[in-house]
């Protein structure tokens, strides 16, 4: 697996798209810092970009990479190597190269603008961490969708739809239900709904680290108690990890049975 990972990674970091992705983040971070010159404001905007764009890029690159390297994958399948190693190697190679673009693209401008002197370093690190795990989650899901769909158009469509659901539609339904059932106590429902979607969970976890956290306290102690407590925080982190691990297990399972 490590060998496949290594070569996939080398292949990908040299690709034009990785460079574009990296430059995009680099430019974005510089522009934000230049316009705001206030690291904490820049971090909030950065968060919005990461929790929406990170998953989208993960989904698109995951799908494209799988389909584009399918013929080479067939060559690899004929080599004396386990199937799961091939797909996991490719998956980790892709997820790591995307994460590298993210970390460097955002990291360099923040370091240049004096991140280490500001108190925002932990907020920044938590943003990077979230970006990292979201990339893994959505790249994994894209890989799974690609594995499950021979038809490329269908696979691509499903992956984009999945992203759209998680990033927008889910929240729409969630908000609708909240308004619909506003007569009832909704704290637990709201908490549960936001914890189950990795994009929402990431957003809430970052917001709670920033000043805005007190707003959460506004509606009731439930959010703050949950996310403020060690148990709640570790539960949230576990859920994110679960979201990352389940697609990987699904990839392994699917890869075992698939015909190429």
């Amino acid at each position: 697996m490590i060998k496949i990972l290594k070569y996939s990674f080398f292949d990908l970091i040299r690709s034009r798209w990785s460079l574009i992705y990296f430059l995009f983040y680099l430019l974005l971070a510089f522009v934000l810092l230049f316009l705001n010159n206030d690291i904490s404001k820049a971090i909030i905007t950065m968060m919005n970009v990461i929790i929406i764009l990170g998953p989208l890029i993960g989904i698109i690159f995951g799908i494209m990479y799988y389909y584009n390297s399918l013929e080479f994958t067939e060559l690899l399948l004929a080599q004396p190597i386990k199937r799961s190693s091939i797909f996991l190697g490719q998956f980790f190679g892709l997820a790591l190269s995307l994460s590298l673009s993210l970390v460097l693209g955002l990291g360099i401008p923040f370091v240049v603008y004096g991140l280490f002197q500001s108190g925002e370093i932990w907020n920044f690190i938590s943003i990077l961490w979230i970006g990292f795990i979201l990339t893994f989650i959505f790249t994994g899901i894209a890989f799974y969708i690609a594995l499950a769909n021979q038809n490329r158009i269908k696979g691509f469509g499903m992956a984009i739809l999945f992203w759209l659901f998680m990033a927008v539609i889910y929240d729409g339904i969630f908000l609708l239900l909240l308004v619909w059932f506003k007569e009832y106590p909704l704290d637990t429902f709201a908490l549960l709904s936001s914890v189950l979607n990795p994009i929402d969970l990431s957003r809430v976890m970052i917001l709670l680290k920033l000043d805005i956290s007190a707003l959460m306290g506004y509606t009731g102690a439930v959010f703050k108690n949950f996310f403020g407590s060690g148990v709640g925080m570790s539960a949230s982190i576990s859920i994110l990890f679960l979201w990352a691990v389940v697609p990987i297990l699904a990839i392994v399972r699917k890869a075992k049975r698939k015909d190429f």
Binding site: I44, D171, D200, T219, F223
Partner: peptide, 10 residues
């Protein structure tokens, strides 16, 4: 309670 949706894309 919907405050938890703050800053989401939707």
């Amino acid at each position: 309670e919907s405050i938890i949706m703050i800053r989401s894309l939707f």
